[in-house]
Nucleic acid binder design. Sequence first.
DNA 1: ATTAGAGGTGAACAAACGAGCACTATATAT
DNA 2: ATATATAGTGCTCGTTTGTTCACCTCTAAT
Lengths: 210, 210
Amino acid sequence: MKKELTDRQKSIYEFIENFVQIHGYPPTLREIGKEFEIASTFGVKRHIDALVKKGYLIVEGSASRAISLVDPAEKAEEENLNVYSIPLVGRVAAGFPILAEQNIEGKLAIDHNLFSVKPDAFALKVRGDSMINAGIVEGDVVIVSPQTNARNGEIIVAMLADEATLKRFIVKGGDYYLMPENDNYPLISVKNREDFTIIGVVKGVYRFYN
Amino acid sequence: MKKELTDRQKSIYEFIENFVQIHGYPPTLREIGKEFEIASTFGVKRHIDALVKKGYLIVEGSASRAISLVDPAEKAEEENLNVYSIPLVGRVAAGFPILAEQNIEGKLAIDHNLFSVKPDAFALKVRGDSMINAGIVEGDVVIVSPQTNARNGEIIVAMLADEATLKRFIVKGGDYYLMPENDNYPLISVKNREDFTIIGVVKGVYRFYN
DNA sequence: ATTAGAGGTGAACAAACGAGCACTATATAT
DNA sequence: ATATATAGTGCTCGTTTGTTCACCTCTAAT
């Protein structure tokens, strides 16, 4: 739980929350001051500072109206659902960053109590049957935590020769391999390959039946 | 539908939308200008004016950052995560109703935009390897829509001799069978078995890697 | 009696901001 | 040829905004 707020601070926090809801942008110090009959902007500022220190607000720089609520994620928490909305990547077009707009197909709510991922995770539709022995089949959706390194044995999403691929990452004797979980596909050595990059580690799998 | 936007206007609208999403407050004219390499604030302002005239934005007075999107509610709905919280059933104790408190192990948030299930769905941890050919392995979690009937070919959760089991439901020549997706297990005829009940149909599968 | 914390005043200031103007460029349609 | 709409530049202007200063008040704990 967050630190305790004084009554005054709580009132001010609620006002800001409300103001953003109504207007679509945060109030200025003077607008807050007017509401609470605080003549000096400094009086207001110290409340804002306190709210920032206690973790309720974020103020970016000293720009105008640059107050933002920490809240929205937390709202869901109070309702007991720890949910991120992550992008669902359909196909991966070579040459584009994986999260480029061209690639995004939709959104997906995931419960990060279960999938231990950060909000920068994304979901990826699986094509092909190279991971069938690991129980990942065509049409499945994998939850990927973006990172450029991986541990031995983890299932990863990697770029190999301008194509996104899903394989198990194997470290053996100082060499790196991509191992398909399918007896029909060969082990691939990626040692010294310039066109190989790790994009992320698979943290979970979804499948839908319709 | 709203009036048509030019490409440029659309880009700028999307940028504002995105900015608000990320920061919690709208951008200034100069921030927009920097993004699109428009040196003069006036150039930006006219785009904003156009967007206001066409009904996409509201600008209140001439205050700083007083831009707000017209349709936050609409957008919120689109982006809204339609999430149910459903119970996660660990083991199924024979003799108890499946949703008895003894069986519940936790909660799970599911996006019912993707899993087309009602709020009465529940999740079940998979034991054993009887569905391995269908890509469902030990430890997976299946999303089950409770119902007492099933169509040919659907994967179902059923009670058979006081044990919960996960099998494919097959209708063939007026008879009913439970088919394990594992070559090592036999097809089971459930025709005329009094100790057989369909509990629900599997609508999805989750898997977590840790 | 004194210290510490929360809350507030009033003024002064620099930076950031929106508004406005005259002018240019480039299409497209008349 | 000539409007018309879109898009942009470079500049000025006045206002808004956040920051900071020294100083005041009240309450609660030491």
